[in-house]
Amino acid sequence: MFLSNDVQGNTEMLERHIVQPADAEHPTILSTEDLHVYYGKKEAISEGDLRFASNQITALIGPSGSGKSTFLRSLNRMNDRIATVTGRIMYRGVDINQPSIDVYEMRRRVGMVFQRPNPFAKSIYDNIAFALRLRGTTDKHELDEIVETSLKQAALWNQVKDDLNKSALALSGGQAQRLCIARAIAVKPDILLLDEPASALDPVSTSQLEDTLLELKQNYSIIIVTHNMQQAGRISEYTAFFNQGRVLEYDTTSHIFTNPQVQITSDYVSGNFG
């Protein structure tokens, strides 16, 4: 689908350029329609209507304060009670931004990983098994199996398999973040939202994390906020550029990076921003 405001010559830059993904192999799994987010009276997201392709990685980039986190946190309603979110958030055809939606059930399908690793003050095993137990999975073998597969998917299993009963707070930053990913995928979500998951990590951990995400893409649809342009370039199929609460440009990542249509995007991705 092609929704750009206008098609003009390549010499003149557009004000906004939105190309929604249209790939039959990867149908839309999540989309926002007429989305507005307000903190009190202040509008933090004014134009943010995007479609997200399933089993792909979509990167949200843009300067700090442009509303990336606000947008992302609205997608699984983590902003309930913090901000007012109007409009529709369609998940597989169901508007999950209605009051009648059970947010707890919804968040099991739309999981989230945060900027700062936030493992619980529990053992590594319990960090993962905990949410499952609360929802009635009590079978030890089943739990063991889920813990193992989740840790393997998050590429952490080999490092911690002998220390499952140790406190998760003792893990290094990179390991802790991968534990958080394992924890999020243990409840078998459909979509994984990540808010600058690598910003607190060293380069080695970051690259391991990226490999993990590329693996996870086969089973999950991933939306990731990143301030790291190279990262977006390395892992994502689609990239949306946010500025001052608006998505100014949305297209395949290669288009955004090699042939941006909007001046600000161009400045931003080439690093002459601000």
Binding site: R92, G93, V94, D102, Y104, E105
Partner: peptide, 16 residues
């Protein structure tokens, strides 16, 4: 399947 999903998502879960 959409209807089914909607039903699942609107069920009052244990958490609620």
């Amino acid at each position: 399947s959409t209807q089914q999903l909607e039903q699942q998502l609107k069920r009052h879960s244990k958490a609620a």
